[in-house]
Design a protein around this nucleic acid. Structure first.
Length: 947
DNA sequence: GATCGCAATTTTTTT
DNA sequence: AATTGCGATC
């Protein structure tokens, strides 16, 4: 399976030593992920006969992105039909959530609030959520304020739940209790609560406990230097319960998340947790990424830190050569303007310089260059300079979404409804959008329609389904403001430009749709239309404005050839041929400690163990590590610049770290200081060629279905990100689904249900998140689910013993960079005529058209995943339509079906790669497509748009 | 050269 | 609210 000679001696040692706990100290660029993937493959290799199967291994990563990378690498090393879907690879949070939902029936109906929705939720319940319980230490009569101090409250709740703390005072205990009770009442988790509850669950002899005890053999934790106390507790707990081998991987010099409580003491003192002979530490000191110049300069800097693993080193494997006086430059300028101009100049000069790596020699392109920032407020002036020099760039942190004309126009719809602006102003916002060919009559029609939604109209006032999302979608539909309306149809370059601009515009509309969705998921129907509108506008103005980054980036389906601007934190784990590090001033890097009201004015420092980790350390070791991370991102070229900021007194003096870099001048100092003699403009150039980026994508069935039906719908939903309007009836399908899941799990264990137990089960699983003030709907919806579950139980309970899998995760690696993911509702194995027959079952609610060929596609896809999991091919597929409760005959599955669906997926993915988002010609599909109202097809007379 | 007062300025982000 | 830089003052 894997060839051990592909690895360095120490990598090999890390892969093959499997008896002891292992600490792998992996320096930057040391092939960490490759080694971990190799280790997993080695453990699973049947030839080695270690008796390890995928469900015996858990691998924690820091981010989902890192998880996807590791998953792909592992699958490259492991063959087919090995049940890899049963190995968990993902974040700690992801694991805890899955563990809770699979083992505790109560948590199946919970959903997780991200930061923005959590804040909305807290503000909505300000009076009862415990915020008032916390007041200023210096003045107990001043409690945390609604809206203003919500972030502080979130921080405090996180700190007291994720840190090791001493006995909390009663007010904090009460606040925590109220906070968690409120979340629970609404079936929400926040991120900390997932960890807390999972840990709690492991304290007693639960299903989860015995599951871990009997299954877990190897626990891999990546980025171990960034672990915080509660995560550490969880890892320890898992180890104690299962007595598994612990493999921790990380680099203490790259601990940069300490303000979240992460602590590199865990990796530094790892060995002390275990008896002497049971633990081994292996350094991966060879850096395959960077030139000796880069490793030298980085080593020099970090050696000033005291709190680190002793006797560490990083050696360049010399995959890149080092040319002194050219590769690494440190230039100083008179002003920031001059500095930025010089950066733009440097970029233009270095484009086309020959660059050689494992894939041969090519000319450097824009996408090889990254500008790394300590803080975002540095970005604006740099962006300006790049624009002046016509340099393409992408950036993810400059908040200008709400300043774009399209978002101002979209927001205008709601300002108009709230009577902040009049009809003319709204119309003006839309007709002055760039490149638009909007029809004025349609626009006026859309505005006329809006007038029926004024919140002060008596008819509207009583409407509990006042959906801002629907108003937004209807406006686009009626005004016919489709993507094409912003493209100028000419045959020259202008056409291409307007096409691109229209795409960005719709991407931003999609983002706006998400803003509405985030708001309405928390506040749907909770107040009168007028107040709903008012809260939304306040949310946009006070919260959303600096929360949602602007559009056309972070787009997994499109990687433009452009300079990447990001923070040093975001660059963790990435690498670039060219790294530019501007603004090396005091107070910027190291950053100045932030002033202002903070959580420690409300939370006594004494209560928290290792409290100082949350604030900047006096030795500035944290910031030094940050610079270290930045330096080690570079493969070869590094430009450091400094200039006094004439407009800001804080940023005038050179960073103290420059002197530390300077101290390495032992005759081989690699930096050329300040003489600006070297210019790439004199170098020979070849054709710039962006590195072929292998974009791994994971597709689930919902996404595939969009592409199958209509690639343009995929674009609207997955590329642009439009969100469907919410309605009160939502939750019926999921409630029923969750009831069946519990029923099946317990039924499989031989449990028999009486009426009362069945009722309990239903009560526990029923959840209609958007149903509030209107009581009228509550009962009918409830009855509907109840009736269906009871009938289903009556018709099927005799068969529960034949269940083989419930809610089984599947994954199928279609080719190098396509991973298909899914979850099968139910798999039964029935013995008939002395032979076992496997049936894959999917439940569909009666609103969905279960007979469509698309459902058969879904089942075939699941059969593919099932084969990957078990090595067997299922015999039948079957759809069970909820509500009809008609037992349908299973359909025979043929081997050709699997081949057919594979080809179909391949074809679809090619659509995505070629960015060919064609609209379907099958008008029947348009008739059943809700998104058609965002699409120019809706003008077609043959197409009926559903109400 | 030390000290004081005053005005200007003030992060990082994943789950 | 805290930190910083800088000019005024001792």
């Amino acid at each position: 399976m894997i060839d051990l000679t592909d690895y360095s001696p120490n990598q090999r040692k890390a892969i093959t030593s499997i008896d002891k706990h292992l600490r792998i100290i992996a320096c930057a660029g040391s092939g960490k992920t490759t080694t971990v993937a190799g280790k997993v493959a080695y453990l699973l290799d049947p030839k080695n006969d270690f008796n390890v199967s995928p469900e015996n291994i858990i691998a924690f990563t820091f981010t989902e992105k890192a998880a996807a990378e590791l998953k792909t690498k592992v699958l490259e090393n492991v063959g087919h039909f090995r049940g890899m879907a049963n190995m968990y690879t993902g974040t700690i949070h992801g694991w805890c959530l899955k563990a809770l939902q699979e083992n505790e029936y109560l948590y199946q109906s919970y959903s997780v609030l991200d930061e923005i929705k959590l804040k909305l939720f807290i503000d909505k319940h300000y009076d009862s959520i415990g915020m008032k319980e916390i007041s200023k230490l210096s003045n107990p009569s001043v409690p945390l304020r609604r809206f203003v101090d919500t972030s502080l409250f979130v921080k405090i709740m996180d700190i007291i739940r994720e840190s090791d703390n001493n006995n909390l005072p009663t007010n904090l205990q009460l606040a925590k209790k109220k906070y968690e009770a409120k979340l629970k009442e609404n079936k929400f988790f926040d991120f900390s609560m997932i960890l807390e509850k999972a840990l709690e669950n492991l304290e007693s002899k639960t299903n989860l406990f015995s599951n871990i005890q009997s299954n877990l053999k190897y626990l891999i934790v990546d980025e171990y230097q960034d672990i915080n106390p509660i995560q550490n507790k969880l890892i320890q707990k898992l180890q104690h319960i299962s007595n598994c081998n612990l493999i921790v991987v990380g680099d203490d010099d790259q601990n940069i998340y300490q303000w979240r409580g992460s602590n590199n003491k865990y990796i530094i003192n790892f060995e002390k947790n275990f008896s002497e002979n049971s633990v081994q530490s292996i350094p991966l000191s060879e850096n395959y990424r960077s030139s000796p110049g880069i490793t030298k300069i980085a080593e020099t800097l970090i050696s000033n830190n005291k709190e680190r693993i002793p006797n560490k080193q990083m050696l360049s494997a010399e995959k890149q050569n080092f040319e002194r006086g050219k590769d690494i430059l440190y230039n100083r300028y008179e002003s920031v303007e001059e500095e930025n101009r010089a950066i733009a100049q440097y970029i233009n000069d270095i484009i086309g310089v020959p660059f050689t790596d494992g894939n041969g020699t090519r000319g450097l392109a824009f996408s090889d260059i990254s500008i790394l920032l300590r803080t975002w407020n540095k970005a604006e002036s740099i962006v300006q300079a790049l624009e002046d020099h016509n340099i393409p760039y992408i950036t993810a942190g400059v908040n200008q979404l709400f300043d774009t004309p399209e978002i101002e126009a979209a927001l205008g719809i709601f300002s108009f409804l709230y009577s902040d602006i009049d009809e003319e102003e709204l119309e003006l916002k839309w007709v002055s959008l760039p490149n638009n060919s909007l029809n004025k009559r349609n626009l006026q029609k859309a505005i006329e329609n809006l007038k029926e939604k004024f919140p002060n109209l008596p008819s509207v006032d009583k409407n509990w389904e006042y959906s801002l999302q629907k108003i937004f979608w209807d406006f686009i539909y009626t005004s016919e403001a489709f993507e094409e309306a912003f493209i100028i149809e000419t045959s020259n370059a202008l056409f291409e430009r307007t096409k691109e601009r229209a795409e960005i515009m719709f991407f931003n509309f999609g983002k706006f749709s998400q803003v509405i969705s985030d708001f309405e998921e928390i506040n749907f129907n909770s107040s009168s239309p007028r107040f709903h509108l008012f809260s939304f506008l306040s949310f946009v103005n006070y919260v959303a404005r600096d929360y949602y980054p602007e559009g056309w980036l972070n787009n997994p389906y499109k990687t433009p050839n452009a300079v990447q601007i990001m923070t040093i934190h975001q660059s963790k784990g990435l690498e670039f041929p060219v790294v530019i590090l501007p603004g090396l001033n005091k107070n910027y890097l190291p950053a100045k400690k932030r002033g202002g009201l903070n959580e420690w004015h409300f939370l006594d420092r004494q209560l928290i163990v290792d409290q100082q980790r949350y604030e900047r350390d006096p030795d500035k070791e944290d910031e030094r590590r940050l610079l270290y991370v930045a330096l080690t991102r570079s493969k070869k070229y590094l430009l450091l610049t400094q200039a006094p900021d004439l407009n800001n007194r804080l940023y005038k003096i050179e960073s103290e770290y420059i002197q530390e870099l300077n101290r390495a001048r032992d005759g081989v100092f690699p930096v050329m200081i300040s003489d600006k003699k070297f210019r790439f403009s004199n170098e020979t150039k070849i054709t710039p060629q962006p590195q072929e980026k292998v974009n791994n994508i994971a597709l689930d069935f919902t996404t595939l279905k969009d592409i199958f039906d209509c690639p343009y719908r995929f674009k609207l939903v997955s590329v642009f990100g439009f969100r469907y309007p919410l309605n009160q009836r939502m939750g019926v399908g999921r409630s029923f689904h969750n009831c069946l899941m519990e029923l099946h799990k317990r039924g499989k264990n031989g449990e028999i249900f009486n009426t009362e137990e069945l009722q309990d089960l239903i009560d526990r699983q029923i959840h209609f998140p958007y149903l509030t003030n209107s009581i009228k709907l509550q009962e009918p919806l409830r009855k509907k689910v109840e009736k269906n579950v009871i009938e289903y139980h009556k018709d099927n309970h005799y068969d529960f013993e034949h269940i083989e899998f419930i809610e089984q995760d599947i994954q199928y690696k279609l080719d190098e960079n396509i991973l298909v993911l899914g979850r099968i509702d139910l798999i039964k194995k029935i013995k008939s005529n002395g032979q076992h027959e496997t049936i894959i079952i999917e439940f569909k609610s009666d609103e969905e058209n279960a007979d469509l060929p698309i459902t058969r596609d879904q089942l075939k896809l699941y059969a593919l995943g099932h084969r990957e999991l078990t090595g067997e091919t299922a015999d039948y597929i079957m759809t069970y339509v909820i509500g009809e409760n008609k037992v349908k005959t299973p359909e025979k599955l043929y081997p050709e079906d699997l081949q057919e669906i594979e080809d179909k997926i391949r074809k679809s993915v090619n659509f995505i790669w070629s960015e060919n988002f064609l609209k379907t010609n099958d008008f029947k599909k348009c008739n059943s497509c809700y998104q058609v109202r965002l699409c120019s097809r809706s003008i077609n007379k043959e197409i009926k748009v559903r109400k």
